[in-house]
């Protein structure tokens, strides 16, 4: 675990977010007083019942939403808007339906800041590399609507990585998949994130989910959030060795951690359905 006393990659200080309903003017506190330090190369999972503001936190880090109060700093510099240094993978993938797989993955390189200095052939090479990496070779010319859910998810992941962000923001990226595909892609995600590489080469990742076992399998630390208003309830280190294999799910420690997280969420989860 990367809990050295280096300067944090990301630092959220007393971040709150209020929304005002357009008609009534009624205010809702979506996120209240969230403070968090994330080290470079860390894999953070954020878990909590729906409505706990986890997506709002992610959007603020992405620069798509502004905190009502508090600050978010990346490498000591306040975040003022969206940028290609913080790539987002959206819940429903947000692929461009009019572009085929290759052009979707190459979109940021072609139109955005990441590809500015690169020649055309370098860009094409990089797109080809990520197509290979996520196992989409042979489907380059297909449109998103011709792909299965798992394949779309891979396109979104490749598009995210091709832009070379140093922070990966993943908003329930596996949420729409069936259970089996999900397990396979969890392993693959860790491989692509750089689990087998030395820690300093890994990207920083914030992964949002409501699947408790998923957080234990993926994370270095799990941030548990609670609702009304959304705040950080606990931060749990996951002391399972890496690289993590499928078999780790059978270990007692895995079960204990999942149980502990469930214990933190249970009351609210029951209240939500009561």
């Amino acid at each position: 675990m990367a809990t050295t006393n280096r300067a944090p990659k990301l630092k959220l200080s007393n971040v709150s977010k209020e929304f005002t309903a357009p008609g009534t003017g009624q205010r809702t506190v979506a996120v209240a007083d969230v403070s968090l330090e994330i080290q470079s190369g860390e894999f953070i999972c954020v878990v909590g019942p729906s409505g706990c503001g986890k997506s709002t936190v992610l959007n603020m880090v992405a620069g798509l939403a502004e905190p009502s109060s508090g600050t978010i700093e990346k490498d000591g510099v306040p975040i003022t808007g969206p940028g290609a240094d913080r790539g987002v993978m959206f819940q429903d993938y947000a692929l461009f339906p009019w572009l085929n797989v290759r052009d979707n993955i190459g979109f940021g390189l072609r139109h955005g800041t990441p590809g500015k200095e690169l020649s055309r052939s370098t860009r094409e090479e990089r797109v080809g590399h990520y197509i290979e990496l996520v196992g989409l070779a042979g489907s380059e010319n297909k449109y998103p609507h011709q792909l299965s859910g798992g394949m779309r998810q891979r396109v979104a992941l490749a598009r995210l990585l091709a832009n070379g962000p140093d922070i990966l923001l993943l908003d329930e990226p596996l949420g729409a998949l069936d259970a089996q595909t999900r397990l396979i892609l969890q392993v693959e995600l860790l491989r692509i994130w750089g689990e087998t590489a030395p820690a300093e080469q890994r990207k920083t990742a914030i992964f949002i989910t409501h699947d408790i076992e998923e957080t234990v399998f993926l994370a270095d630390r799990v941030v548990v959030m609670s609702t009304h208003p959304g705040r950080v309830k606990a931060v749990l280190p996951v002391d399972l060795p890496r690289p993590r294999e499928e078999t780790i799910r059978a270990e007692p420690r895995f079960g204990h951690l999942a149980e502990e997280i469930w214990g933190l969420i249970r009351d609210e989860a029951y209240r939500a359905i009561a």
């Binding site: 959206f90 947000a94 832009n163």
Partner: peptide, 14 residues
Amino acid sequence: VDRKLVQAAMTMGV
């Protein structure tokens, strides 16, 4: 237009 698509482009520095 799906707002997510615009947001996706924004997070790619377009």
